[in-house]
Design a protein around this nucleic acid. Structure first.
Lengths: 194, 194
DNA sequence: CCCATTTCTTGATCTACATCAAGGAGTTCC
DNA sequence: GGAACTCCTTGATGTAGATCAAGAAATGGG
């Protein structure tokens, strides 16, 4: 059931059987139907989730009710609001499923226990967060310095599979533009290229 | 000499005297004059730096030669290109000093040795990167969803001291707008408010 | 203290992208 | 197999912020 998760871990740190068993023992399983929420803004994010199958989106809703997608999470990525999770304060983000989704969950108490019993997990999560941080910083530079078309092409190149799976207007939201603009950008590109 | 750094560490993990001494033994000291580079794009970022005194900026230069500031680093923050540092690949960022600056440096070999000898440092850096990641994600949402005036007000509120220390056009670059626009935004605000 | 550089401001004009409006094309669901 | 969503496209028009240009103000190095 958690093969992919164990593999994800073992690619980064080495665990013996007992440590592996302990890790699995604190993991819970969750299924989400399409559109079902994993967390909602205003609530504390009680779990960190590892995507076993499916796809979710993390987004903020502004005062005009517009959604702004911060990230998509597919198989073999962790999802959740780190800040809310670790501080126990209400989250500002909504996370919901774009497809039928299965998750491996860990709660804060278990995560802390895990760090205590198997300190190597500090390293595992450090490596993950480090990569996520690097990616996030690149996205900041993109967002503040590049025109929409270029940002779309970057997305297209970096996440070709995601683009197949996700409706265009969600991608527009992720890029910080309107669905109309993305539609026009794609049209221009297809006229220009082939 | 490294009191602030040791304090920064000891607020997050508990070290005994031997561990502290070992940590300090791998740290080097560096002074930068104003405008001097800490790293340049195209070169490998050989060190992670902790700011003892002064202020630096991390920025990318686009194909038109425009600078886009990713972050400012003042006293008690770490600076450097994490990706280049850990992978040994050429950096895409320039980092230079906005003021006369003093840094505590650690190189990759030392960092790895540190993780090996004092695994608690995995936790220390996990906590730092985690906070940085959370902040970066917020900045992404801001950049893709909020108008320039609002982004400026957020900056103004979150980093009041920084705003005193740094020329306006650098702040404009950080916000992803032109110096002219920031000047106009500030004018409007001062007409509207007082 | 003075010259050079850096920084900030203001005006005129331009443009990327938003907004508003509407129709068409799939999907999904009894 | 039609009703109701959800999604995508296209056109007309509006606007936040960019660009270009020029000068004023502040700063700093010698």
């Amino acid at each position: 059931m958690y093969e992919s998760l164990l593999q994800h871990v073992s690619r980064r740190i080495r665990l013996d059987k007992a440590e592996e068993d302990f890790f699995i023992s604190v993991i819970k399983h969750q299924k989400l139907r399409k559109k079902q929420f994993f967390t909602q803004a205003g609530e504390v994010c009680k779990y960190s989730g590892y995507v076993l199958k499916g796809c979710l989106r993390t987004y903020e809703v502004d005062k005009d009710g517009n959604e702004h997608i911060l990230q998509f999470s597919i198989e073999d990525w962790w999802v959740g609001d780190l800040y809310s999770f670790f501080t126990g304060t209400p989250s500002r983000y909504f996370v919901d499923a774009l497809e039928p989704t299965e998750l491996a969950l860990i709660d804060l108490a278990s995560q802390e226990l895990l760090y205590e019993k198997v300190p190597k997990f500090e390293r595992y999560f450090r490596l993950l967060v480090q990569n996520a941080f690097v990616a996030s910083q690149r996205r900041v530079v993109s967002a503040i310095s590049k025109p929409a078309e270029e940002r779309y092409l970057e997305f297209h190149k970096r996440y070709p599979t995601l683009e197949q799976r996700i409706p265009q207007h969600q991608i527009a939201s992720y890029l910080g533009i309107t669905p109309e603009s993305l539609s026009r950008i794609r049209k221009q590109l297809s006229n220009r290229k082939p």
